[in-house]
Write a protein that binds this DNA or RNA. Structure first.
Lengths: 222, 222
DNA sequence: ATAATAATGGGACATATGTCCTTTTGGGAA
DNA sequence: TTCCCAAAAGGACATATGTCCCATTATTAT
């Protein structure tokens, strides 16, 4: 995965043809370590980010200081697109969970080179529409189902191949699901008593996907 | 308000220049009575709706049969835009709350005439981005604040000029806020005991906006 | 006016969830 | 090994919210 080039990534995601040479020239590859922050809510944004390696955590602090985790992002997701369209300050805080590589695309180049590009506008439209649907789904899910269902959904979504949850801290997990750490623990303990998972010092292993799935139904966190 | 023409409405919302003659020809004005349904979730969609008079209620039934009210729409809002972009079946059910007039714009005309129109794409992009932000805000608000805050917010949002809430049924209100009818009643009763509102047979009058606002802070329902 | 009926309001109770704080555990320092 | 500390788990209690069902009030038909 190391030392790939911008054009390599663009190629991989079938984006090379959409961005003209001059735009590609302006792109910058940036790699950051896990834990480092890309930007914070309230700052002004001048860059669109395309995540190409690693994992990002999007969060937001409420006026009262309570943290909500809004999403985890995986490669090929865009960040800063809403702000690009609305020309507004950054809404959320984004930090790298693992070592992460992004392609930075300055707004001003996009503005100059891409504003009249229907293919690009169409692409952006689809991207943002998709985000909207994800958000809708997440919201419906939160309003509709209690914490246990959401926890199960999260576990299933986060362990697509592997059965052991990678190092998401339980606190982050609680903040994503929208509950307290205490309550998350309670629910996880129940799951363990049912024999659906094994928990050991914060690492969770899903041992009975089928039961989890049957009990819980759908799934949100992409 | 009666007997306005399509071009009259387009004029009013500064949309006449964006839509070429041929597209405007294909538009249809439709007026429906309060309570009637425009379409239901799961159906196929072939029309974009521009709401120009009245009020629409957007709702969704969960697989378990629980109803969520997702939004109330007021003039100049679009409905069916997400489905247009994603070319997918209708996600939600939309019905008129009051007598309502919409402009129907068939997808196929848009497809043929507008796909390459950057102004239109830009416009759609902004519309949907705005929807995304509204949804985000609503979701954060739901996750962050308890029912009483949401109720206060709703009351404030729904009585911008008038102090008496128009005839939203309390059941709809509960479904929009995402709580049970019973609990909504409880909260409203508290508000009444505080002297912030007066409730009489389902009609609510806000008597102390300031206190409501102070107690509750922000606001979502547009 | 009176009775029947539907809409509204509320009591009682169970459960889900949050907050605060204590206990337990595992791992490293001495 | 033993002790100490931070991370993790859990106990106790308060509150928020949901469910079920009954009481109350308005509305309509007779």
């Amino acid at each position: 995965m190391e030392n790939e080039t911008i054009s390599g990534y663009l190629e991989r995601y079938h984006l090379s043809t959409m961005f003209p040479e001059r735009v590609q020239q302006a792109m910058q590859l940036e790699t950051v370590a896990g834990g480092s922050r890309l930007f914070s809510q309230g700052e002004n944004s001048n860059t669109l980010y395309l995540l190409v390696e690693g994992k990002l955590k999007v969060s937001r602090l409420s006026p009262e200081g309570k943290r909500l985790i809004l999403a985890f992002k995986s490669p090929f997701d865009f960040v800063g697109d809403i702000e690009y369209v609305r020309k507004c300050p950054l809404i959320n805080t984004v930090e790298a969970v693992t070592a992460t590589t992004v392609i930075r695309i300055p707004y001003d180049v996009l503005e100059i080179e891409m504003t009249g590009n229907t293919e690009w506008l169409q692409f952006l439209l689809e991207t943002i529409t998709h985000k909207f649907e994800l958000k809708s789904h997440a919201m419906n899910f939160s309003l509709l189902y209690a914490v246990d269902v959401r926890v199960a959904s999260y576990l299933l979504a986060m362990t697509p191949d592997d059965t052991t949850l990678d190092s998401t801290s339980l606190i982050d997990m609680a903040d994503l699901i929208g509950t307290s750490y205490r309550h998350l623990n309670r629910v996880l303990k129940q799951f363990e008593e049912h024999g659906w998972i094994v928990k050991k010092r914060g690492k969770i292993t899903v041992t009975d996907r089928t039961s989890l799935l049957e009990q819980m139904g759908q799934n949100i966190y992409e």
